[in-house]
Amino acid sequence: MLTLNHVARRFANGVEALHDVSLSLDAGDFVALLGPSGCGKSTLLRLIAGLDAPDGGQLVWRDGVPAPGALGFVFQDATLLPWATAAENVFLPLRLRGIGWADAGAKVTAALAQVGLGGFADARPHQLSGGMRMRVSIARALVSRPRVLLMDEPFAALDEFTRHKLQEDLLALWRELGCTIIFVTHSLYEAAFLARRIVLMSPRPGRIVQDIASEVRSGAAARLDPAYAALVAQITGHLRAVA
């Protein structure tokens, strides 16, 4: 689906965030980009989203650069419009692309239901908990039915209970929707639980040091699965080798 060839990014202040990153991503995959803070994960995700351009190498999309709407982005914070209701926030991407409420209404309702917020269409962000706000943010990304969903540490600011629940719900959504998810995280537990493929990055300048295949997990019970524990142990070993 997307191939990155020797991608490099150096910022104007001389910081080299990415150094020779080559990676090939398959459609329908769930990929975790795992690495320590400051290793260039967000930079890589912004390059994939087209929000930033590389200084070297290229990104090649097999079916052409995604049109607006084919690409969903979920940020670390929910980044909702504080003055707008949950439904208005989810409607926003469609509205920006010129789609009226008459055509969008049903999609917005469906997206909110998908993330388990069916009854909260008229709630404003300050009336929702952090986890619910993140759910609205995910609904906002899903409402366009994106081919690719980019997520930048979306659950990092949540408590463990909420995070586990959202991880399980995200896995279920991914299975249901069949889109490609590229998920940035610095939690190896999160990467091991969610992803089918774990791309491990080195400290800055970011390079890819390991590419680990995983298996699809089937919900909450998988956290107690010995295979999951073994994968966590394997990644931990790689981390120690890198650091």
């Binding site: 989203a49 690409l71 419009l81 003055w83 926003l92 991407p93 366009s144």
Partner: peptide
């Protein structure tokens, strides 16, 4: 206006005027 929201507007192809009307003006209220 938060940088992430400006990025979201860009990702959805919003023009200068839409960004002002739907994001910058309400954020400035």
């Amino acid at each position: 206006a938060p940088a992430d929201l400006l990025d979201l507007f860009r990702l959805n192809g919003a023009g200068t005027w839409d960004t002002i009307r739907l994001l910058r003006l309400p954020a400035a209220l």
